[in-house]
Design a protein around this nucleic acid. Structure first.
Length: 416
RNA sequence: GCGAAGUUGGUGAAGUGGUUAACACGCCGGAUUGUGGCUCCGGUAUGCAUGGGUUCGAUCCCCAUACUUCGCCCCA
């Protein structure tokens, strides 16, 4: 038997319906924020992610799906959405007429070569959005608000936004130096992973789970102390705006994010104070890094699969239509012919319609009616058809009546 | 990349180194020859993830592989 590849999954049945619902909610919300839908290719030149996401990140170093195509090109399946969207932004020269910000959202499959576990797969979906062209904290606030409202509209109320600021490049570099200086003499007291992180990515020591309660980490220099004046000021302004928007946030000075491109505000959406459902931040240098002009940007990505899992775990009511409108039962060949054109008629008039295609007995067809959870059932009978009559039965009240076959659609319109 | 546990029909699962692999749900058929959902009766795995090995004999023991679940790393 050929089985699915590790970390992939098929989407069907109730899960497919749940996802359709979530898509509907998110699409409608993005429309309100005036973000346009975008899809970028699943694969891109490997270089895009190496330069965009950052050569030193684990995501690029050991988690990408890379291959050489038949034209000897080095290709990578996208591990995240932002780099591709930035490539699109640059390639189409959308920076040329930035009278207003360029705002897009996406809902795309991503690929990372990881060990699957709860809420994590090799092929997974991220829903996210990006805003280019504004360096105003207003755009930070808009992005955070969009992320925040998305979860709330989906019924996840116990949401907190963790925010922090890495500051501009100058602030970030100063902070990095300060951290290395601080941790170097103490590093032996931290876990093995932290020791590896010291040179590679000292910011990550801050959100180490093993040493989370360690005084050394608790007393480490704080990002906010290393922000220069302008950076600090904009961070304070952002908090002011978030307060005004009534967004539930907390400042977490240990929040750093793994991708190299972030500066200024970084934020994470956490559920029940711990479980990360999504994250984002500002990336003012990224467009330039990828060969465009200096254009600021800010964005967010939701772990879509994780979010649906969280909704299930929190028993959020996800509306799923698990019933049909009409089931037609027949026995004789002429009744079957009637069923053929009636199903056609009903479906084209908007009714979800089923009939037997398995050669079932009448009893079997009745069982199907219940399995399909049909609201109405129609029993075709040659004797009645001779008078243009059909029997329609309300499957809930069990009341049935004979009506003229030509009145069927009107009858259903009136009763449903 | 590292670690732990798992994998028996459509489903939930019991079970044993040796004839026909429990039980339940579901499904199909009949009782009820065109109005079901209750009840009763009957049927329903060429086979215990895959490939090797040990054995007179393996679903059960051993090894490998795949996949699943959970954790680490990392991330969403």
């Amino acid at each position: 038997m050929i089985t699915k590849q590790k970390g992939t999954y098929d989407i069907y049945g109730d899960l497919a319906k749940k996802r359709a619902y979530v898509n509907e909610v998110l699409d409608a919300l993005c429309e309100k924020y005036n973000y346009g839908y975008i899809e970028t290719p699943v694969f891109e030149a490997s270089e895009l992610f190496h330069r965009g996401v950052g050569e030193s990140t684990d995501m690029v170093q050991k988690e990408t799906y890379d291959f050489i195509d038949r034209g000897d090109r080095s290709i990578t399946l996208r591990p995240e959405g932002t780099a591709g969207v930035v490539r699109w932004f640059i390639e189409n020269k959308l920076y040329g007429n930035l009278t207003d910000p360029v705002k897009v959202y996406y809902n795309m499959k991503m690929y990372r070569y990881e060990r699957p576990q709860s809420g994590r797969n090799r092929e997974f979906t991220q829903w996210g959005f990006e805003c280019f062209g504004s360096d105003d904290v207003m755009s930070d606030a808009e992005v955070i608000s969009l992320a925040y409202n998305a979860y709330r509209l989906l019924g996840l109320d116990n949401i907190t936004i963790k925010i922090n600021s890495l500051g501009d490049t100058e602030s970030r570099n100063n902070y990095r130096e300060a951290l290395i200086k601080y941790f170097k003499p103490k590093i032996k007291d931290l876990c093995e992973d932290c020791q590896n992180r010291l040179e590679k990515n000292p910011l990550r020591i801050l959100d180490c789970k093993v040493d989370a309660e360690n005084e050394i980490i608790k007393n480490a220099p704080k990002t906010l102390d290393y922000l220069n004046e302008a950076s600090l000021e904009r961070f304070n302004k952002l908090k002011e705006l978030l307060d005004l928007m009534d967004i539930n946030y907390v400042v977490d000075t240990n929040l750093v994010r793994g991708l190299d491109y972030y500066n200024h505000v970084v934020f994470e959406v956490v559920l029940d104070d711990s479980y990360a459902l999504g994250g984002g931040g500002r990336y003012n240098g990224l467009v330039e890094t990828l060969g465009g002009p200096s254009v600021p940007g800010v964005g967010f990505a939701m772990g879509y699969d994780r979010t649906i899992l969280a909704m299930e775990e929190h028993n959020v009511n996800i509306p799923i239509n698990d019933s049909i409108d009409v089931y037609l039962l027949y026995v004789s060949e002429t009744e079957k012919e009637t069923a053929a054109y009636l199903t056609q008629d009903l479906r084209m008039n908007g009714f979800i319609t089923e009939t037997d295609m398995m050669g079932k007995s009448l009893k079997g067809q009745f069982k199907s009616v219940d399995r399909f959870n049909s609201k109405y059932l129609i029993v075709l009978n040659d004797e009645k058809l001779a008078d243009n009559k059909i029997t329609i039965k309300d499957n809930k009240t069990k009341e049935e009546e004979d009506i003229n076959i030509n009145d069927l659609v009107d009858y259903l319109d009136m009763h449903m």
